[in-house]
Structures are given as structure tokens and as C-alpha cells.
């Protein structure tokens, strides 16, 4: 298991928690929580982590090949909630091409690190975003084939 080093982010006083200040901030005040309406939604992703029971739903609204709006809901541990929130801030306003290239390492970097046993949580958001992007492709194809 990776050990957290004490940095400016994680000074080691206050409650001694294995999380960085940035991660705790995303846990307490997660960004983009909620759902998009049916009309707004261009893509939707639902993923679960079978190893720990966590679940995430993610909605995107696309305009000019950019993610204009993004929203999520998560059931899970602090790592799942914070990484979901961080992922939405990384994806918001990005082109679809840029959004496809977001990795779990990008999420972890934004949060200033994550305890080793929580690494798998950071994949939840990334996978939900990929699922939403794929869902959008399918919706477009369906539209194209419909008369």
C-alpha cells in the first residue's frame, strides 16, 4: 500500500486522515452533483465497482463537440465521491476528444494523491465518463439510422 507523505496539502495535523486537503474539499463540497434533464442529456453512463459495491451515474450535455454540462451522482466511499467530483471538473468545457483522453492518473493528480487502497475508486469516474461518451455516439448513430 502506498503511504501518503506529509506535504503542504496534507500537513498531518487536524484530524489525521489519509486524504489530502483537496480530496477532503471535494468530499465535503462535491462539484456538479445532480442530474441533467432528459432534453439536456446527450450521453449517460452508469458504472459500478464490483470490488466494493460503489456506483456512479454521470450525465453529459454536448454542444459544438464540447462537454457543456456535466452532472453526477455517486454511492460510495469518500474516494469514490471525491474522484467523481474531480473528474467532472476535468471534463467540463473540454472537447470530446480531450475528454476521452482523461485518465485516472489525471484525477489523482488533481486531488494531490490518493491512498493506495483507494486507487481503484478513481477509475469509477473515468469509466462513467467513457460510458457517457459511448452512449452519446450510440444515440447519434440511432438518430442517423432513423428515418
Amino acid at each position: 500500500m502506498e503511504r501518503e507523505t506529509r506535504t503542504e496539502e496534507n500537513p498531518g495535523h487536524g484530524p489525521t486522515l489519509p486524504y489530502t486537503k483537496t480530496l477532503l474539499e471535494h468530499f465535503v463540497n462535491p462539484r456538479n452533483v445532480g442530474e441533467l434533464s432528459e432534453e439536456e442529456t446527450d450521453g449517460f453512463g452508469l458504472v459500478g465497482d464490483p470490488s466494493c459495491g460503489d456506483q456512479m451515474k454521470l450525465w453529459i450535455s454536448v454542444s459544438d463537440e464540447r462537454i457543456e454540462k456535466i452532472a453526477f451522482k455517486s454511492f460510495g466511499c469518500p474516494g469514490a465521491i471525491a474522484t467523481s467530483s474531480a473528474l467532472t471538473t476535468l471534463a467540463e468545457g473540454r472537447t470530446l476528444e480531450e475528454a476521452r483522453r482523461i485518465t485516472d492518473d489525471d484525477v489523482i493528480e488533481l486531488l494531490g494523491g490518493i491512498p493506495g487502497h483507494k486507487r481503484h475508486c478513481s477509475l469509477l469516474g473515468v469509466r462513467a465518463l467513457q460510458a457517457a461518451l459511448e452512449d452519446r455516439e450510440q444515440r447519434l448513430q440511432q438518430k442517423a439510422t432513423q428515418p
Binding site: P15, Y19, L24, F27, F75, G76, C77, P78, A80, I81
Partner: peptide, 15 residues
């Protein structure tokens, strides 16, 4: 509807 570990962290932050 909520995860126990998240409750624990929420309470921990409240001491």
C-alpha cells in the same frame, strides 16, 4: 442509500 465509510469521514471531520 449511503456508504458507511463516507459517514465515518463526515463524522470524523466533525470530531
Amino acid at each position: 442509500g449511503v456508504d458507511g465509510e463516507s459517514i465515518i469521514l463526515g463524522l470524523d471531520l466533525a470530531g
